[in-house]
């Protein structure tokens, strides 16, 4: 029983961070009707911003984290939207998808050239102390990763549903033309969405890098897992991305423990196929009509 609890709790902690990255897919999909294939690199890069502030500028950790967050929002939110998304938005979705693929390569190779190919140690945000829960040993880091991720998702959901700006963002996502007629500044709402996505990616990066270590190639795995989590949960629902992330994190550990460690990486893909066959809109997603 303690083993079961151990792997479930660890899976939840990792899965909650996948969820933060997966929400990015959902937000960008709703704002620009496109898939951001650089999302994994969006989670990889902020860790290096923090390391630059720590090691090159010699700043304390809290200031380095703030620096990482601000630069991420500026580069991965504002500049991404202005330089890549906005000019390509009038054309159909495919060029933009290809552009995000190119951006993913650019960010990955850029991080490698600038900071090196080796993994870098990354300071933990939370104490490394452990506690026993039902025989399972869990670190404060795991618990706080889970708590922070869930809190952020709840806060984001409340923001989108309970505030005027949040409802304007939702209106823009659902039907930008109608939203504009109703007086919503849709361009600003789209920009807000990209800024929120960048902030979430930065947070995910800061939470996961103490475990993953900071490395230029981290986005490859994270991007794929988060993409699958978003599809499994429902690509157009934030709570779906949360459920998808947690599900993959837990099932990955359970598979490795009780079924096979050799094929654990295949599990998310098997899950993806089953969900798409059974419920194409994802576990919590809603069907979207498309006209041909």
């Amino acid at each position: 029983m303690s083993e079961f609890l151990q792997v479930v709790l660890s899976g939840l902690a990792t899965g909650s961070i996948y969820a933060l990255a997966a929400i990015g897919f959902t937000l960008v999909w709703q704002a620009a009707q496109t898939v951001n294939f650089a999302q994994g690199e969006f989670v990889m890069l902020p860790a290096f911003f923090v390391l630059i502030a720590l090691h090159w500028l010699g700043w304390p950790l809290w200031a380095a984290l703030a620096f990482g967050l601000v630069i991420s929002v500026l580069v991965l939110g504002y500049l991404f939207k202005r330089l890549i998304v906005q000019p390509m938005l009038p054309s159909t979705g495919l060029p933009l998808i290809i552009a995000t693929m190119a951006l993913s390569i650019l960010l990955k190779e850029g991080a490698k050239q600038f900071y090196g190919a080796e993994a870098q140690p990354y300071p933990p945000l939370f104490p490394q102390t452990t506690m026993s829960i039902g025989g399972a040993i869990v670190s404060m880091q795991d618990i706080l990763n889970l708590v922070v991720s869930l809190a952020v998702v709840v806060a984001l959901t409340l923001f989108l549903n309970r505030t005027r700006t949040g409802r304007c963002i939702q209106a823009t996502a659902q039907n930008p033309q109608v939203a504009e007629i109703l007086g919503v500044n849709t361009r600003r709402m789209v920009l807000y969405t990209f800024l929120i996505n960048a902030a979430l990616a930065a947070l995910a990066s800061m939470l996961i890098s103490p475990v993953y270590l900071a490395k230029f190639s981290n986005g490859e795995t994270l991007g794929i897992v988060a993409f699958i989590a978003a599809i499994v949960g429902g690509f157009n629902q934030i709570r779906g991305a949360l459920v998808g992330g947690l599900l993959i994190g837990v099932l990955d550990n359970l598979t490795a423990t009780y079924v096979t460690a050799s094929y654990r990486a295949a599990l998310p893909l098997v899950l993806l196929i089953i969900i798409i066959l059974w419920r194409p809109q994802g576990l919590l997603g809603t069907s979207e009509g498309r006209q041909v």
Binding site: E3, Q6, S10, T14, Y212, S217, N253, T257, A261
Partner: peptide
């Protein structure tokens, strides 16, 4: 006998199996 994948990040299940 616990195999892992190259680049694997989460070793919770691996260590748990060894421990048990």
């Amino acid at each position: 006998d616990v195999p892992s994948e190259q680049g694997q990040a989460d070793f919770a299940a691996d260590v748990s199996k060894i421990k048990q």
